[in-house]
């Protein structure tokens, strides 16, 4: 793997909430151009890991690099899609406005978005099939439309690596399809995506790499190699109903 360019490199990452470890000594190497699912049971530390990588919380130990440099120097290369439920959708603003927020990082402090940002936001909305919703007040969106708005905002960031926290959570079939297409398109452009994912059934279909996490890293690598019953059992304990239903090829 030394030959491939590593998009994300995490070493010895440990996060604790008041001496209680939530992530324990996690190592992770993600090569450029893969779609990686991060799976694990509730409380496994999936969201915490994303937040620690993005510097949204301070780890007790470890370090993170994006294309070989600390995150703080590589902000412009990173796109972030938080959990849909993490914001107040009654906030008085429009869909286009939320999408434009993706460009705020490039604008820097004080500078205001202009007509070019508007056009970019509109075309990002077109990519997620939301072109007609630009002027809609965000409280009028369905869950799937909210998610697509967030994805359009991430596209505005025009990043190299995307971190997505449960992009498929509670969305309708149309949106799920749209997200999958978008992920594939991002991969075709050589972008890297790390997404927290809940539905084990769709992992092999939607992603090519996977990380199994349960406070510690159980395994990570290409889906074909590491998405095994043994690793799943190790991550979920005996609690994977999915395993019993799955028919091994």
């Amino acid at each position: 793997m030394d030959e491939t360019k590593l998009a994300v490199q995490v070493a010895d990452l440990t996060v604790a909430y008041q001496e209680k470890p939530v992530l324990w000594d996690v190592d992770l190497d993600v090569p450029q151009g893969v779609l990686m699912a991060i799976v694990g049971p509730n409380g496994a530390g999936k969201t915490t890991m994303l937040k620690a990588i993005l510097g949204l919380l301070t780890p007790a130990a470890g370090h993170v690099s994006i294309f070989g440099k600390p995150y703080q120097q590589q902000r412009s290369l990173v796109g972030y899609v938080p959990q849909r439920g993490s914001v107040d959708w009654d906030f008085p603003t429009s869909v286009l406005d939320v999408v434009m927020m993706g460009n705020y990082g490039k604008l820097g402090w004080v500078r205001r978005p202009g007509a070019a940002d508007r056009r970019a936001a509109q075309s990002a909305l077109e990519k997620v099939g939301m072109a007609d919703y630009a002027d809609r007040q965000i409280s009028q969106l369905s869950g799937g439309q909210q998610q697509r708005t967030f994805l359009a905002r991430a596209l505005m960031q025009d990043a190299q690596v995307y971190f997505m926290d449960e992009p498929f959570q509670g969305v309708d079939a149309t949106t799920e399809r749209a997200i999958v297409d978008l992920l594939k398109e991002l991969r075709a452009q050589g972008k890297t995506v790390l997404a927290v994912h809940h539905d084990l059934q769709t992992v092999p279909e939607y992603f090519d790499w996977v990380m199994l996490l349960n406070v510690r890293r159980i395994a990570s690598g290409p889906v074909k190699e590491v998405f095994t019953d043994e690793n799943l059992r190790a991550a979920y304990g005996g609690r994977v109903g999915f395993l019993n239903k799955r028919q091994d090829p």
């Binding site: 937040k51 993005l54 510097g55 949204l56 703080q72 902000r75 990173v78 972030y80 938080p82 993490s86 914001v87 107040d88 906030f91 603003t93 406005d97 939320v98 927020m101 705020y104 990082g105 604008l107 402090w109 004080v110 205001r112 978005p113 905002r153």
Partner: peptide
């Protein structure tokens, strides 16, 4: 007027604001 966009972003989505360096 100066920090309108920052105030809006940090109020709506503090997580993204932090990730973008605001």
């Amino acid at each position: 007027l100066a920090l309108y966009k920052e105030l809006k972003l940090a109020t709506f989505d503090a997580g993204l604001a932090a990730a973008l360096g605001f």
